[in-house]
Simulated scan of single mutants.
Amino acid sequence: MILPPLLFAGLAALFLFGMNREGGDALESTREGGVVPELTTTALADQPEFDRDVLLGDGVKLVNFWASWCAPCRAEHPQLVALADEGVAIYGINYKDEAPKALGFLDELGNPYRAVAADTEGRTGLDWGLYGVPETFVIDSDGVVVKRFAGPITEQILETIIRPAMETAAE
Rank of each mutant, 00 (worst) to 15 (best):
I2T: 14
L3W: 13
L3G: 10
P5D: 10
A9D: 00
A13N: 09
G23A: 09
D25I: 02
L27K: 15
S29C: 06
T30E: 14
G34H: 10
G34T: 15
G34Q: 13
T40P: 03
T42M: 00
A43Q: 02
A45K: 05
D46G: 03
P48N: 04
E49L: 00
R52L: 05
K61N: 07
L62M: 11
N64Y: 00
N64C: 08
F65W: 11
S68F: 08
W69S: 09
A71R: 02
C73S: 14
L80E: 07
A82C: 12
L83T: 11
G87E: 05
A89Q: 13
G92H: 11
I93Q: 07
N94Q: 09
F105Y: 11
G110C: 03
Y113P: 06
D119F: 02
G129R: 06
G132P: 02
P134T: 07
E135K: 02
I139D: 03
S141F: 02
V144A: 09
K147T: 05
R148W: 00
F149E: 08
G151C: 04
I153T: 13
I153P: 15
Q156R: 11
E159W: 00
T160Y: 00
I161P: 07
R163C: 03
R163H: 01
T168E: 12
T168V: 13
T168S: 04
